[in-house]
Design a protein around this nucleic acid. Structure first.
Lengths: 192, 192
DNA sequence: CCCAACTTGTACCGATCAGTACAAGTTGGT
DNA sequence: ACCAACTTGTACTGATCGGTACAAGTTGGG
């Protein structure tokens, strides 16, 4: 019984899979591309992901969701120190998106109607991020309505920063915009 | 000699072409999809666009560039009433992007490395938008450094609003975020 | 050491891809 | 009315698409 091995191998392919989808999109990531990116032949890919590309993308999204839930959403939802949690969020997000060089797969999936099978997950990802951040602000004594607005703007701002930084090929732009969002959030807490 | 007719027919196909690329992306927009969207057979498509999909995308980008140059960039660059020009920009952009239901083709092209042939145009589009808006703010007596920062944030903010509105399927979110950007810009001018 | 279960490369499938060729139709100037 | 230029539908190409079949390897428990 080597089901353990199967799982670890499947899991270890996911990061490369994610990068392939990020770089080429769902349609653009052909099996040839995926095979090259993961170093796995078709046989292995369909062994690990019998559902084909769709299942591969599901696995990638599940992996992303787990990372964000653990690293970003949970801390925001359970914070006792909103300022520190928000600072940590900004830092983690900056390194995760490699200052905008790395595309947000969930966001770009939402832009193409093609991924209509994933729209629910896309929506859930952003909804949870915004509500978690809003909750964190509320813990920091920000009024609920303002907290919701600021959270929405911050998440939107990060997405915009990725688009702009990618388009301009300018990492620094990402840093500037995100740093600004950071101080807006901290100001709101400080201004109790 | 009916070269006039050729040009008008070619031009009249561009909007449908643009919508096809927006909905499916460059890779996802197959000739079948394009043919259906434009109502033109392969014969006509390759008659008007001998360079194939690449040339079709070029034509779409040129069309977008013309619209933005005329409607958004020029007014910003030649403004005598910065407040009114910025308000007009926000309104035009909101209707153009259909409150975020319509994707920004240039932005989404920048997200996929696949369109590497178009990166120069993508970069130019955003660079000009930002510098035009910064110039408009400077005419409104905003200090150059602040103007550049606000312009960058506003353009980034609009892109983020599109991503978020599409992902959440929530037009209202687009309106809220863009309205906020609008008042930030007007405040900066008023605070002379 | 052996055998069953797991893994993987290779060959193959029909469908679809972007693009070409070209004949038949349409058009407009004369 | 005629003809040259333009337009377009159709049939085709070779390449690649996602996916399947399966035989040959590899592995690890007993």
């Amino acid at each position: 019984m080597s089901s353990k091995r199967t799982l670890t191998d499947r899991a270890s392919a996911v990061p490369a899979l994610a990068e392939a989808f990020r770089e080429h999109g769902f349609e653009g990531a052909s099996l040839t591309v995926i095979s090259k990116a993961t170093g796995l032949g078709k046989g292995s890919l369909y062994n690990f992901f019998p559902g084909g590309k769709e299942e591969m993308m599901e696995a990638v999204l599940a992996d992303i969701d787990r990372w964000f839930a653990d690293t970003i959403f949970s801390p925001l939802e359970n914070t006792r120190d909103p300022g520190a949690t928000i600072t940590a969020m900004i830092e983690d997000v900056t390194t995760y998106f490699r200052s905008g060089r790395r595309v947000c797969l969930v966001g770009s999936l939402g832009l193409n109607a093609s991924g209509s099978a994933f729209t629910t997950k896309v929506k859930g990802y952003f909804a949870r991020w915004i509500s978690a951040l809003a909750h964190c602000l509320e813990v920091g004594k920000v009024a609920p309505a303002l907290a919701a607005q600021l959270a929405e703007e911050a998440v939107s701002g990060i997405q915009g920063a990725i688009v702009l930084a990618r388009a301009l090929g300018d990492d620094a732009a990402f840093g500037r915009i995100v740093r600004r969002q950071h101080s807006i959030l901290l100001d709101a807490i400080a201004r109790v």
